[in-house]
Design a protein around this nucleic acid. Structure first.
Lengths: 151, 151
DNA sequence: CTGTGTGCAAACTCTTTGCATAAGT
DNA sequence: ACTTATGCAAAGAGTTTGCACACAG
């Protein structure tokens, strides 16, 4: 592959990304490396397929939208990405796999991570027979204060 | 309006439904009454627009799908219905407005109410400035037990 | 009557799919 | 070389919208 990277530090990043993809059983193609770099370089992110597609194109790496969708689902299947449980007809992916929770701003329909989770849930019911709990998602829905200052 | 109801108890149900709609500021049209009856008669429900449309048609009341969508959103705006916070490209509505939580079965993509909530959350973070917590949604994601019997 | 609600069909957004071509090992 | 991934364009779901007609008050 021809060297497309302009910035040396990208080299390192992409090398480790390649390893990560390989250990997930995914061939480190140019597209997948580019997408994974964007996803995992800047810390935790919430992205839609369209947003990620725009970003990767902006870097000058042509990737079709269909490939972005495919790739995001492959990453999800490989366990290095997660689908956000929020309403709306758009699918958002979360690069943070660990247990953590989200703010959802009503109206704006934006998602933010809950800073750190001292958050804990108690009194969880037993799951129905034959089922086990895979994960507990907590979404804290926020609305703009109605002219009441925070005390 | 011609009497469409075959069963007397439906009469009562629909009368109270009419009041409910009026107090929500919605004119109790035939379609809205039919939809509200289906939604609120059988206890708590999780429905998509398509499902509700199928049900109302099955009762012999012709309602267009567009009207079902409009009506569901009107009900939501009026506060007698809620949108479920779950992933997926389909919108589900919940007739249970009060605080309660959900099981989500992975793979099947079905939603169930958590029986009763002894569930409580602690350690909630302060919302960002200018924001207040509107609601906390908890989704307990379930997966089928991998051949391990429940102990 | 007057204004609001409804139906229909078309438009729109997001997402998936099929198949020929390209790239990775 | 052989296999898997990608791109494209088309199809598919779910949802919204515009406008003429119908209905409730």
């Amino acid at each position: 592959m021809v060297s497309i990277n302009r910035e040396p530090h990208l080299q390192h990043r992409e090398e480790s990304v390649e390893k990560r993809l390989k250990s997930a059983g995914l061939r480190p193609t140019r597209q997948r490396v580019a997408l994974a770099s964007l996803l995992f370089a800047h810390g935790d992110r919430h992205v839609s397929a369209e947003e990620l597609h725009a970003e990767v194109e902006a870097e000058g790496i042509p990737v079709s939208l269909a490939t972005v969708y495919n790739t995001l689902h492959q990453f999800t299947g490989a366990g290095i990405l997660r689908v956000l449980s929020i309403e709306g007809n758009k699918t958002y992916f979360d690069t943070n796999i660990s247990d953590h929770h989200h703010f959802f701003v009503e109206g704006e329909n934006t998602v933010m991570d809950v800073p750190d989770s001292g958050v804990s849930v108690s009194g969880l019911p037993r799951p129905p027979d034959g089922m086990e709990i895979a994960h507990v998602d907590i979404v804290i829905r926020l609305r703009k204060n109605r002219n009441k200052p925070q005390n």
